[in-house]
Design a protein around this nucleic acid. Structure first.
Lengths: 242, 242
DNA sequence: CACAATATGCCAGTGACCGGCATTAGCTGG
DNA sequence: CCAGCTAATGCCGGTCACTGGCATATTGTG
């Protein structure tokens, strides 16, 4: 948990309005919908001008996704701060947990609200995914800076591993949100449950990985019929079909 | 390649303006930028009203991403049409190749233009990723309909495999675009190169998969220092710390 | 206290997007 | 060939997100 000490008065003031905007935005969007809430309503409720809003957030979507951005900004900082590890899944998970631990109070509530909004609002999904992809690029840059990929294949591996992790993350928060519809007892247990979901999702990755290797037995869904009549013709490795 | 025969005159006319809009949009956006081109410029160039534009496309971004949508719509149709296979990576690749084969003439040129625009325009990235995620959901629904996942873990595996595939796809078209800056000799070879890139990217997935298994040796980046002093404490598999 | 640096508010503009309504153009049965 | 139907289109007005310019206020500093 970070605190505000060491900030100048002006900065604290700005931070206060910023937080008020996030809080009020999540409240309004949740109550009456994202598209149904105008910016004027929001800024009137917080009693600031539109100009001020746009100096704090780049768009209407931005404020709704503030909790998500907060996490990933911290994640990147943490990734850069940490000693260069092997950049494995376990490393990524550690870094993620560290970032989660640094979130300010009430973050889990805000984040869940933000996520629920995403589920209702396609425009928010788009912005969220874009943000994710930007994080991916930046994280890849960090990893590449300390351990340059020897060739294109290695670079692809790094990227796929990261995307795999993000997919697992998305799954985890999906599960978390589904279980968290009924509000948690308190913030601490709520956050602990998030960690548990993340652990579970990350733990499933090796299984998927094994599944992706065609040479290994699929071992999943034994009820399948491998000898199907009109089986899909094998495409990988065959000669170039015009 | 699909042809227009069997369509009524009205439908052909509509299709013509639709295509003209895509063509002109890609041209204008490429020449003077996405944000710098107003809708009025576009519709004036094609000589239709804004109203007509919005009956063909849901947004300004939509028209810029039309080639991408064309591919994935065909992909989904193809996925549903095909006999239920094992839903492996090879299946997905086959389906993808089939969809690529059905694209209309000049698709590769349009698609590359659209992609180049994405690289320049964050807003387009957002919409593109959202579209991808929608395709993922629909594809998962198709797969689940014919082979319901026995449990949550299996469902997660299905999802991760699909996301892995899409990540590989994005990588492949990235490579394709990079190589295709210098225009291809002709459309056929251009498309053949795309297939080659996809094959290569998909082929790399098992390697990544192996990498994601912690029990296997990393085998990639032997210059690493595994015995680092402040090694990250193991996170996966430990007892649940409440 | 004077002065510099920001933050803020106000305002007018631009452009995407969406309704309603009249008009036109392609379809269809006689 | 014509009348009637349907669907596509154009026109128009309105809403709203977002931007830039400029004056004002508030805070940090010597």
């Amino acid at each position: 948990m970070t605190t505000d000490t060491g900030l100048t008065l002006r900065e604290r003031k700005k931070l206060r309005t910023r937080r008020a905007l996030v809080e009020e935005a999540l409240r309004l969007f949740t109550e009456q919908g994202f598209g149904e809430t105008t910016l004027d309503e929001l800024v009137d409720a917080v009693d600031v001008s539109q100009r001020t809003f746009f100096r704090n957030f780049s768009s209407k979507e931005d404020v709704a996704l503030a909790p998500e951005k907060e996490l990933w900004t911290t994640y990147l900082a943490e990734l850069e701060r940490r000693p260069p590890g092997a950049s494995t899944l376990a490393d990524y998970q550690d870094t993620l947990f560290a970032a989660i631990g640094q979130m300010t109070e009430g973050w889990e509530r805000r984040f869940l609200a933000s996520r629920a909004l995403c589920d209702r609002t396609p425009a928010l999904v788009a912005h969220s995914l874009r943000h994710c992809s930007e994080i991916t690029e930046r994280a890849l840059a960090v990893v590449a800076a300390r351990r340059p990929a020897p060739d294109a294949a290695a670079a692809l591996h790094d990227r796929l591993l990261l995307e795999l992790m993000l997919a697992a993350w998305r799954w985890a928060i999906g599960q978390w949100a589904a279980a968290g519809e009924v509000p948690c007892a308190d913030d601490t247990t709520c956050r602990a449950e998030l960690r548990a979901h993340v652990r579970r999702a990350f733990g499933a990755i090796p299984g998927t990985a094994r599944l992706a290797c065609p040479e290994h037995s699929p071992e999943h869904g034994p009820e399948r019929d491998p000898g199907h009549g009109e089986a899909p013709r094998t495409a990988s490795g065959g000669p170039e079909p015009r």
